[in-house]
Each structure stands twice: as C-alpha cells, then as structure tokens.
Design a binder for these strands. Sequence first.
RNA 1: GCGUCGGUGGUAGAGUGGUCAAUUACAACAGACUGUAAAUCUGUCGGCCUUAGGCCUACGAAGGUUCGAAUCCUUCCCGACGCA
Length: 289
Amino acid sequence: MQKQKVIVILGQTATGKSDLAVRIAKKINGEIISADSRQVYKNLDIGTGKITKKEMGGVPHHLLDVASPKHKFTVSEYKKLAEEKIKEIISHEKTPIICGGTGLYIDAITNGVIFPEVPPNNKLRKILEKKSEIELFKMLQKLDSERSRTIDKNNKVRLIRAIEIAKALGKVPKITQAKSTYKFIKIGLFLPKDLLKKKVELRVKKMFDKKNKGGLLNEIKKLKKTGISNKRLKEFGFEYFEPTYEKVVVETLKYAKRQMTWFKRDKEIKWFDASKISDKEILDYLYIL
RNA sequence: GCGUCGGUGGUAGAGUGGUCAAUUACAACAGACUGUAAAUCUGUCGGCCUUAGGCCUACGAAGGUUCGAAUCCUUCCCGACGCA
C-alpha cells in the first residue's frame, strides 16, 4: 500500500509560509496543522505573527490556541496532538499540511523522534537554576554519566532538563526513532538576505502599529494583567520582553539564521526562493512526488 | 576668536610609554541541538601565509621625542560644552 502523503511547509520567518499553505490547501483540499512553538498559546497573537481568521480563508487550521500561556507547552505534547490531527484529517479524506518554522516540532513529527514522557518540574527547575553550570554538570555526571559525556557543559537549560529527566526515569533514555507511516513532502521557503530584511521590517512595523488590535505593547500589557510574570514573558521570546522596533528586527533576523542552521541539516527539504516562486511550481513539484 | 574636554576596529566603549591587532559589549559570520526551541549554547571576528608561528596595515592627519607610541610633544582638521 502506498504511504499517505503529508505536506510540510517550513522555512524562515516572514517568508510567506502561512499564505502559501492556505493557497495550497485550497487547491488540494487540505487542512493546516501549525508547527509553531508559540502560536499554540492563546493570547500570543501579534508578537507571534499568528494568522488571522480572515487570512485563513476558510481553510481549517489546527494547533493554534490550544494552550494557556501559563501552562508550559512541550514538544512531546505537540507531537501527540499533531499526530492525532494528521490521523483525523486523513480520515476525512483530506491532506494534512504541516506549516511552521519551529524546526524541532517539525522534526518531532517527520523524523518520528520519541521523547521521554517527563513533564517540566518547576519546583526542581527553580532549585537547579540557582546552581552553576559546573555544579549541574557534576550532578548529571553522578546521575547519568552516559548523558554527561555528550551534553554541552555550558548549556544550563539542557543540563537542567537532563537532570530533570534522569531524576524522573533513573537516566536519560537513548533517543529512539519510529518509522513513520506517512510520506512527508518537505517544502522549504527562504528569501535572499536583503529581501528578508525588508519583509521583517515591514512585519515588525505592523506589530507595533496600534491600529493592529492595539499593537504588541498592548498585547503584553494584557498578558501581564492576566498574571503572566516578566520571567514567563521572557520565555516567549524577544518580542515579549521590553521590545523595541530595532531590537525585534535584529532579533528576528538572527532567529531566521538559526532556523536555517537547523533546517540545512535536513536533506529531504526541497528549497524554493519565496521571492520568485509561483504556486504552480510548487503544485507541479507535489504532483511529481 | 579664546578656553576646556574629546576623536580608538562595523557600532558603543576600555586602554593612557613596551606584556596591544588592542579588555568588553553589541552587530556580523559560522555552527550545535535528548526537546523551555523566536529558547539555550559554542566558535570566528584587520589583512595575508596551512596551524605553532610569522609578515604587513592600523587607535582623526602630518611631523617629532624615544631603543620602543593608541598612549608623550607640536601643528593642523573635526566634534561637544563653556566664555565671548
């Protein structure tokens, strides 16, 4: 039996992934599953560049607004939900289109990585955060010497997570991958540097525009009112912590680079220059496969 | 016009006779990823030579002092402030 096709549209931020996904979905009877680590949260709209109802053009979108900003959403939750959605969409005889820029989330689905089921332990994290990298490394060494050998000793976030997993499960399990039952067709969008910069500037300008639902600063104010701490806001990324126009532009461009560093490793991605591409070319490519 | 302070690498800003191609931060470039991912972390960052190392060009400009100058002196140019 032929494997069911799942289309994946990924790439740098501000390259027009969402728009393309909607147009493709209309042509091939698809539904869209977002792959964005922040758009899963309710009330993070302007800063995350979340698609609006109008822009969806009637195409169903999934995995947007599925979590409260107070809750720490994780990849493994994402994977579970996304896999359910894929199944559901296929059972309705439609084509799932995964669309987003969070490389880790995309890989979680398309590479079948199985994550240990250890939810964040905020109490433990709070204690560990006070320790130095060296102390944390020594702790991990005692708990799980194998993991300590490959971990980045300077990366506090990872050290804490590794300790968290090791404490819960005895040790950090070896990463395992399951063969997927789907055939993923990965389409990557990128923009030449100068064009990307222009697009980002435009987008950020809009973010700060008060006519855009009160603007980003208003969105942050509202989040604070619901009890979101500054620390939590920081975790939502640079748009949410003391943002200025200049800072958001620079940080967005840096982020776009990190995205490419991640995506470059995946040789299955077929890349298209978003400034030159026509929908027809992409549809042709999809039919070939 | 007089006086004071200042002009340092893409930017900000240390250094104030040798250990200075110049602390640091930011930007830039490259990369990592056991999963908090728009997060977090690493490397490079004047040019040339394959690394150790070496050579060249550089701290506003031109001269000078000195074995040796980003650092001291002179003149000039530019900026800020004060007095006119």
